[in-house]
Nucleic acid binder design. Structure first.
Length: 381
DNA sequence: AGTCGAATAT
DNA sequence: TATATTCGAC
């Protein structure tokens, strides 16, 4: 079957007029409200060429409109391969009036999987609408995305590949292609995020953000890095926490990098001893200021990112204490933490706008508690 | 298998 | 308009 295409309706008409036998069927993507299109359709009718209309309009109303104009069939865009599979049938005298749109409740049934061997058999089916449930495009909802993030986090950004990601995600309905696409977009997204944050923002760092990452305490980092890590969502801590007690797998980026954060060039992973991570980070990348003189792991002063539900979740669930065996026991909440969280609950709730901050005392208190927790940790045989 | 970018969809 | 997903092509 040969296909001829043209963008221009008048060209289509003259092509058909030139060689009438050549064309069995016209497929037209037209605006059904367009007067010019209508005259085009009328000409097709006059020439007795069956035509199929394609449009963005959805539902039976569009289909009925198309049929009213004499179309054999109305296809809603996007048009799937499946839609096209049986379209040839319309090139053979299918009664135009019977057409309905593909999503309609056609009473007749048709099994596209059945092997319709004979041409005759097929011709009998000319009146039958192939059911065309087009797969809805994949929606990367939060859950799915988190799974994706979890996978690439576990694999390591630099060497996360679609195939392994897919395997790790264990989502039978996902295709490798979709994962690949998502990975690509995610990289681009990261790039966007970071180029927004740096270099000036990171350098001046007028609004330092904070977040809770690492194990078993807090990491404070400038805004751009927070943006980056926040992409990891609630799962960051999970994977960070998977490391051995007393160490922390941490990925960091050069200060002014606007490069692809997934490239190995910019992605460095190190296992750092806690609680020296701040120091190490400071030495290596100068992205984190000195710990405050008090020794608290506080990024002094500055505007605080609201304490989000996620951050609170981390604090509540994931602060842990290493044990002697090198394992980690989590979910050991101290009363102080509970108290602090309560405080935060009251003070920092409803952070709809970013102006809200946790009470400085609360932060200090929390850090104090953390310090104790860490030291206790170290002393624990 | 991965990646890119155009086309398409939201 | 901007971003997201799909898809053909390399």
């Amino acid at each position: 079957m040969k296909v001829t295409t043209t963008e221009v309706e008048s060209v289509a008409i003259s092509l058909i007029e030139e060689a009438k036998d050549r064309f069995k069927l016209v497929m037209a993507d037209v605006n059904m409200d367009d007067v010019n299109s209508l005259s085009f359709l009328r000409k097709l009718l006059k020439m007795n060429i069956p035509f199929i209309l394609m449009s963005n309009e959805k539902g039976h109303k569009a289909a009925e409109k198309a049929v009213a104009y004499g179309a054999s069939l109305h296809l809603e865009k996007p048009i799937s391969k499946h839609d096209l599979k049986y379209l040839w049938q319309y090139a053979y005298g299918r009664p135009a009036k019977r057409a309905k749109h593909l999503h309609g409740n056609e009473s007749r049934t048709y099994d596209p999987n059945k092997n319709v061997g004979e041409r005759d058999e097929q011709k009998k089916m000319l009146n039958i609408m192939p059911p065309t449930e087009r797969k809805p495009r994949l929606l990367w909802n939060e859950e799915l995305h988190q799974k994706f993030i979890a996978a690439i986090t576990a694999l390591g950004y630099a060497n996360a590949r679609p195939k392994s990601i897919l395997t790790m995600m264990d989502e039978p309905n996902l295709t490798q292609r979709q994962v690949a696409s998502h990975l690509q977009k995610h990289k681009e997204h990261m790039k966007r995020l970071m180029s927004k944050a740096s270099p000036s923002e990171l350098a001046s760092n007028a609004n330092a953000s904070t977040s809770i990452y690492g194990k078993p305490g807090f990491l404070y980092m400038p805004q751009g890095y927070y943006s980056f890590l926040s992409q990891l969502g609630g799962h960051t801590h999970k994977y960070l926490n998977d490391s051995v007690a007393g160490t922390c797998q941490f990925s960091y980026l050069p200060q002014h990098s606007t490069a692809d954060h997934f490239s190995s060039e910019y992605h460095n992973e190190e296992t750092l001893q806690f609680p020296n991570i701040l120091e190490s980070m400071h030495e290596k990348q100068n992205i984190i200021p000195d710990p405050s003189p008090s020794g608290n792991l506080v990024y002094e002063n500055h505007n605080w990112e609201p304490w989000t539900e996620a951050a609170r979740g981390v604090a509540e669930a994931e602060i842990g204490v290493g044990n002697a065996a090198g394992g980690v026991t989590w979910n050991q909440q101290s009363p102080d933490l509970a108290q602090l969280l309560k405080h935060l609950e009251e003070e920092g709730d409803d952070c709809g706008d970013c102006a809200k901050q946790p009470h400085p005392d609360a932060v200090d208190q929390f850090c104090e508690w953390l310090k104790e927790a860490i030291q206790g940790n170290d002393n624990n045989p």
